[in-house]
Design a binder for these strands. Sequence first.
RNA 1: GGCCGAGUGGCAGAGUGGCCAUGCAGCGGAUUGCAAAUCCGCGUACGUCGGUUCGAUUCCGGCCUCGGCCUCCA
Length: 457
Amino acid sequence: MSLILYNTLTRRKEAFTPADPARVTMYVCGITAYSYAHIGNARPAVVFDVLFRLLSARYPKVVYARNFTDVDDKINAAAKAQNIAIDAITEKFMAIYQEDVAALNVLPPTLEPRATHHIGQMIKMNETLIAKGHAYEAEGHVLFNVPSFPDYGKLSGRNRDDMIAGARVEVAPYKKDPADFVLWKPSTPDQPGWDSPWGRGRPGWHIECSAMIETHLGNTIDIHAGGHDLIFPHHENELAQGTCAHGGATYARLWMHNGFLTMDKEKMSKSLGNLFTMRELIEKHPGEVLRWALLSAHYRQPLEWSEDTVDQAKTTLDRAYRALERVADVKPAGDKAPKEFLDALDDDLNTPKAFAVLAEWITALNTSQIASEQATLKGQLLAAGALLGLLQQDPKAWFAQQSKGVDAAEVERLIEARLAARKAKDFKEADRIRDAIAALGVVIEDRPDGTKWRMAE
RNA sequence: GGCCGAGUGGCAGAGUGGCCAUGCAGCGGAUUGCAAAUCCGCGUACGUCGGUUCGAUUCCGGCCUCGGCCUCCA
């Protein structure tokens, strides 16, 4: 089976075929760098990282850009509130974001363009749009004229009447059409701004992505992705601008949108305040656990997030690593993920289905007594895990990282003492020692190859 | 109000016109000095009311409930 992906634009699953197999292009809308990103922000980073890995395994070159919005009114507000420079805010939070997603095993994209590095291209694109009659200047603003693009609304599935009827914002008087949106806006002296043919100002949000895509990926890209909430207006507007600026060329051949993390069924968001930042979760849990949890639901579905979600992912992942630990000395055979696993991912990145396949292998691995079989299972587990960005750690390291802060020497000493007691058939003393070990938060396992210990759940 | 999506066992979460998701938790069993781990098994799960069908959780329609977008938002 070939890769099938759901296209928001057509509302159906489509076979993915890149325009140029020698250079596959994908763009994912990143974050606005003005505060700590929450775990919901990590979902597209992780989900599309899996897509990136999958594509990279099949095509010689995948150019993946994930941008930073580093000029924005929220950033301005944050800088003003803290009385520091705008750069101080954006540099800090871009770095934090990169550290955070790296902790979730997210590979660095090919490119991480920043909006402020593309102001010239944005201005140029605006000029093009004006020249082609798709945009106009008004009172220091440049506005995209929506009626000039008849396909407007196609991506989000709404018509102009609906949009006007549902409009909750007052229409600025200088707009020719109520649906027109800003490409460029004037800055006051205390706001960041750049000189332009329309005076000192700053770009509107939507033009940023279009200019960065044009600069780095081209007029037509294979995949454009982002959160579900970006469909309208952000992606609808990007689509309009990009298409019009390039004489009607297809802007993105496939649109993908991830669903939200929810808490008590409600969207996790900054405005509601029902969130966990990546930072606080990473401090408490291994990044791989968070990644597993994020991939445990299909990317287009909402995912209910709670401490329990994380705990369940942890327990499941422990089981996987225990299975691998058991065959630590077995050399894995093969480095290809089997078809049944790939079929799951090929079906619009069905990671829960892929996890079900992994679970079967884990059980098989725990049951198998045959070395060659173990080698095969281990090989496919590691190969499949690599595509998901999971299970790549040495099991010993995995369990060791959880026992930080425990006096390992003391635990070992107690285990020796218990072993002696058991040898002497003094089980009462052995149990007493085990209780002492348990008091340290440590669980022990008597295995054929000796007594092992790990942290309690 | 407009547009869109969803309601699956205690929890998370796939999927399918008739047969098993899977994981976590729980219960029973095997194993173990006891545990832990592992394995095996178990729970009459598919919002509701109709319709189509030999047969529907899966298709169609109504209803109810919930969520998302329409404003910054992953």
